[in-house]
Amino acid sequence: MTPSVNLRDPRVKRTRQLLLQAFIALVEEQHNLHSISVKEVAERATVNRATFYAHFEDKYALLQCWMHQKYHQRLTSQFPASSTLQLSTLRQLIQSVFDVLALFRSYLKPGDRQYEPLFENVLQQELYTLLLRWLKQVPSEVSLQEEVGETTAQVISWAILGPATQWSRGDQTVSAEEMTQRVLSVVIAGLSPVITVA
């Protein structure tokens, strides 16, 4: 996205939403991310290509924005602002990653494999953000220094995403529930000083 766009401007929000809606409609019609062009998205949104490029660098940036929005909404509905770092919420978060990756793979066409790293990057960023929020809410007597908290959130987000990605790309002979439990046991060890069992 170009830095000249003010995301707080209601007109900018409206235009971005039109572009996202147009993109989603085209995905649903064509069932193929690769074949969708910027021209088609702009025409469907009833804006010109220059307007598209004022909001997004290319269709991959639009796709990434859409993925962030979708996964962020899912996490927000599952984990409201009042949620905290507990064994139960951590288990639910890990299970969510396995579920989302399985769903993503079910929609992925052979020609769309190039989008896998983009989607996985979005998942990791959203996981990191949520984990960091939880770590910042830890009671002061066990809280981590800010830079340690950021590193912890980074490491744990990848510790969750790595096995989930490998599982989703494989034959999935082990159930998502079993994999969730395996990942949880490893992640808990890393978070033992700050996690509460509930």
Rank of each mutant, 00 (worst) to 15 (best):
E141C: 08
V155T: 08
I188S: 04
I160F: 13
R182S: 13
V155L: 12
I160Y: 14
L132I: 07
G170E: 03
W167T: 01
Q154L: 10
E150K: 13
Q154I: 01
A189L: 15
K136C: 00
Q181I: 03
D171F: 11
S168Y: 04
T173K: 13
R133C: 06
A176P: 11
L144R: 00
L131Y: 09
V122Y: 12
V122L: 05
S192T: 09
Q137S: 14
V183M: 07
A164M: 03
G149F: 08
P163T: 08
S168H: 04
S175G: 12
G170L: 03
W167C: 10
W134A: 05
A164D: 07
A164N: 10
G190Y: 09
V122A: 10
V186E: 10
V155Q: 08
E178S: 11
A176M: 05
T151G: 14
R182Y: 09
V138P: 02
E150P: 01
E141K: 05
M179Y: 15
V174Y: 12
S185D: 04
P139S: 09
V148G: 01
T129S: 15
E126T: 14
S192I: 04
E141R: 08
L144E: 01
A176Y: 11
A159N: 00
S175W: 12
V183C: 09
E177P: 02
S143R: 12
W167V: 11
Q172D: 05
L184K: 06
G149Y: 10
L191F: 08
V155A: 13
S140L: 15
V187K: 09
I160L: 07
I156R: 05
V142R: 13
S185K: 07
Q172G: 00
A159W: 09
D171K: 11
T129Y: 09
S140P: 07
E146G: 05
L123I: 09
R133Y: 10
E126M: 15
G190P: 11
V122T: 14
L184F: 15
L135F: 01
S140K: 12
L130M: 00
V183I: 03
I156Y: 06
I156C: 02
E146H: 12
E150Q: 14
L130I: 06
T152L: 05
K136S: 06
E126C: 13
V186C: 07
W158A: 04
Q172F: 05
P163R: 13
T173C: 03
E126S: 14
T180V: 05
E141T: 09
T165P: 00
I160N: 09
Q172M: 08
L123K: 00
L127E: 03
V186A: 14
W158I: 05
A189R: 14
L132K: 13
A176C: 06
S140F: 09
S140E: 10
Q181C: 04
V187A: 14
E150Y: 04
P139K: 13
P139Y: 15
K136W: 07
A176F: 11
G149N: 01
Q125D: 06
S157Q: 10
P193Q: 09
Q166A: 13
Q124H: 12
M179L: 11
V183W: 04
V138W: 02
Q137A: 15
